[in-house]
Amino acid sequence: MNRIQLPGTDRSPEVDFDFASGRFVLRGESYPEDAAAFFGPLLQSLRSYLSASDAAPITFEVGLAYFNSSSAKALMNLFMPLEDAAADGRPVIVRWLYADGDDTIEEAGEDFAADFDHACFEMVKEARV
């Protein structure tokens, strides 16, 4: 599959879905006008990758400074197939990056982490720059 790289904008996150390495990254802020239109193709590509690829390890890194409720739903939609793949024995790590002192994003990560039983969900505190 072709790598998906999208630059971040003032409303949408930077995207780097590197299928060859199994590394997927979302960074920045996420409150696109149409979250379904933005995240839908990413979800479809991720599902296609998971169904067509071997059991190579996956790292999914999320470093969002802000996201709205529509983006939260889209994130959960991305996380569900990752959890399913982990339940089937595939090594999956979700890395939730948050700035030191950003309690809102930290708590959101903890809420997402509670929905995982099979994938490894890592909370990663980053120093403020």
Results as ranks from 00 to 15, higher is better:
Ser70Tyr: 06
Asn77Glu: 06
Leu6Asp: 04
Met1Cys: 05
Pro41Gln: 06
Leu78Asp: 00
Ser48Glu: 01
Ser45Glu: 05
Gly40Met: 07
Ser12Gln: 10
Thr59Asn: 01
Ala56His: 10
Glu29Asn: 09
Ser53Asn: 01
Leu46Asn: 03
Val15Tyr: 05
Glu33Leu: 10
Gly22Tyr: 00
Glu33Ala: 12
Ala52Lys: 11
Leu6Asn: 01
Asp88Phe: 05
Leu43Ser: 07
Phe79Gly: 09
Ala87Arg: 13
Glu61Cys: 03
Gly28Tyr: 04
Gln44Lys: 14
Ser51Ile: 07
Pro57His: 08
Leu26Trp: 11
Gln5Ser: 11
Asp16Ser: 09
Glu33Ile: 07
Ser71Lys: 10
Thr59Tyr: 00
Ala56Gly: 12
Ser21Cys: 00
Val62Ile: 15
Glu14Ile: 05
Phe39Pro: 03
Thr9Glu: 02
Gln44Asn: 00
Ser30Asn: 05
Tyr49His: 14
Val62Cys: 14
Asn68Val: 13
Ser30Phe: 09
Ser69Pro: 04
Gln44Gly: 02
Gly89Arg: 13
Gln5Met: 13
Gly89Phe: 10
Thr59Ile: 06
Val25Arg: 15
Pro41His: 08
Met1Ser: 13
Val62Leu: 14
Ser70Val: 07
Ser21Glu: 01
Arg90Leu: 03
Arg47Glu: 01
Met76Cys: 13
Met1Pro: 06
Ile58Asp: 03
Ser69Val: 14
Leu42Val: 11
Ala86Cys: 11
Ile58Arg: 05
Arg11Phe: 12
Ala20Phe: 02
